[in-house]
Structures are given as structure tokens and as C-alpha cells.
Design a binder for these strands. Structure first.
Lengths: 136, 136
DNA sequence: TGTACTGTAATAAAAAACATTACAGAATGA
DNA sequence: TCATTCTGTAATGTTTTTTATTACAGTACA
């Protein structure tokens, strides 16, 4: 599930959801996630590319949600993180002389897609607003 | 989804499913998967622990399915691989002084569990026999 | 025009995955 | 019985991936 990146993205977005129209700095976000600010900026860059947040440069700058938390699905977050990281998966090179080895990647890809779809359908049922309501 | 291990496990099991009551050596299996035999033996060791295959030591030894492929669900394979690798996940240490950081792991764990369940439910619908029928 | 930010590249360090070597022990069968 | 062919596993090395750090140009504000 690409746990690491997804966790960071959700964490960032939850903080932004709770901050409303405030601009939060990458330094501040990094402080809560407890990772390096540059990593946060990279993930922000990705989330921005995917239309989930907007950023303001310069003094008093930072990031905020691009749209209401009610309109952001956790599956949107998943897709954003997945896109950037899942391209060019299949690292394994099974033996092409074996009837199983020759075909297995095709069948595995299909299986993974189906399994992933089931997961995404689930993530599709929760908005960022729902998720961030869980915090006191 | 712990892609690598799962792929290897499915590959091995598919080969065993097609081999019927023959004992296949780790060397042979490794040849089709195209990885080191020791890795295969490690995965076999895990699958055996989970009751999916049995092995025979010594000359003419090897491995075979512990039960008919019809009775092995892909979710069984997933669970076997997951167990061995997912223990002690949560590597991130969010800031405990932040209301979000303090609670996020709990909520993320729950979310992952739900998402994973959706996936497992899907994997639950395919047997190893179904999967291996796909090969010519 | 100094200060506080973002954006991004380049590099380094740490962690995880994977490969290799080595060897003890088990079963077989000549 | 003993050479052979396997498994099982530990120890170690290599490669890949992830994460962290440093550095600095550019932007906006006051």
C-alpha cells in the first residue's frame, strides 16, 4: 500500500483540514509528522500537482487545502501517492522458458489491480473531513 | 501489499499446484521465479509454517501442496506472507505534543485494517486452483 | 531590503530487500 | 555404508529504496 508516503500525505492533509484557511509552513507540518521539512515539501509538491492543496511562496506563506475537506476522498490521496510511486513496478524477471514464469506477471498484475480496486472502493467511502473529525 | 514476497509465494504455489503430487526442489522453483534458491527455501519455510505446503528432506526431496489447490485461497497466501512481514510496522514517530501527531497512528492503523480487509475479501474469492488454471 | 517562506537539486546516510556462501543434517539407493 | 542430492538455516555481502541533510535560488511581505 506504500504505507510511508500515504501516511505522510494523510497526516499533512489532516493538519491542513483542521487549520481551515490558515497557511501552514512546511516547517510546522514537518514538526508534527516528525520528518524532514524537505520531504514534506516534496509531498506537498505532489499533492499540489494533484489539485488537493495550494501553496503560497514567500513570507507568511505555506499551504492549505485547495477545496473543502468534505470534497477530498481518501482515495484521491491514495491515487496521488500511488501515481508518483507505482509507475514501473514489476521488478521481477521470471524465467521466460517456463510456462508459469512466462505468464505470471500478467496474471499477477491483473490480480493486484482487482485487489487494489477493492481497497480503493473502500477508501472511496471516507472523506478527509470524516477522517479529521476523529481528532479531539 | 508487500508485493515482492506475495508474488514469490504465489509463483511457487502455482508451480506446485501444476505439479500435482511431484516433489519440486527449491533449485527448480528458483529457476522459474529467477531468484536465489535460499530465498525460495525461506518462503517455503514460511508457507510450510502456515500449513500450505509440505516438504521432504534428503535425496529426491522437495515440496508439494499440503492440500488440494481448490482448498487454498489467495487470501491464505496473503495472510501467510503478511504475518511474517507486517509485525512491527509503524516506523513513524509523530510528535506527541501535537493533537494530530499524538493520535494519528491509531487512526491510520484502523484505516489500513479496513482497507486491507476490503482487499482480503477480494482475495478470498479466488482459489489457487482458479489462479493456476489461467496458465496454458 | 531584510526576513521568512517555498521549490528543487545534489548528496549522504540509513534501512530494507535480495543474493551469496557455507555448511550441518536428512533421506535415498547403489 | 557412504556418496549423492536434497532441505534448513546462519552469516555475510551487495544492491536498491527510502529518508535525511545541505545548499541555494526565487518569491512575497512589511
Amino acid at each position: 500500500m506504500n504505507n510511508g508516503r500515504f501516511s505522510i500525505a494523510i497526516h499533512i492533509l489532516t493538519l491542513l483540514a483542521r487549520a481551515g484557511d490558515e497557511w501552514l509552513s512546511s516547517e510546522y507540518l514537518a514538526g508534527s509528522v516528525n520528518i524532514n521539512p524537505v520531504l514534506v515539501r516534496k509531498e506537498i509538491s505532489n499533492l499540489r500537482r494533484n489539485g488537493l492543496i495550494i501553496s503560497k511562496e514567500g513570507k507568511n506563506g505555506g499551504s492549505r487545502l485547495a477545496k473543502p475537506a468534505e470534497k477530498i476522498l481518501l482515495s484521491d490521496v491514495y491515487q496521488a501517492v500511488r501515481q508518483a510511486s507505482l509507475l514501473g513496478q514489476n521488478k521481477n524477471n521470471p524465467n521466460p522458458d517456463c510456462p508459469v514464469g512466462r505468464q505470471i506477471n500478467t496474471h499477477l498484475d491483473q490480480l493486484y489491480l482487482e485487489a487494489e480496486n477493492a481497497m480503493v472502493t473502500k477508501l472511496n467511502q471516507t472523506t478527509l473531513a470524516d477522517f479529521s473529525k476523529k481528532f479531539a
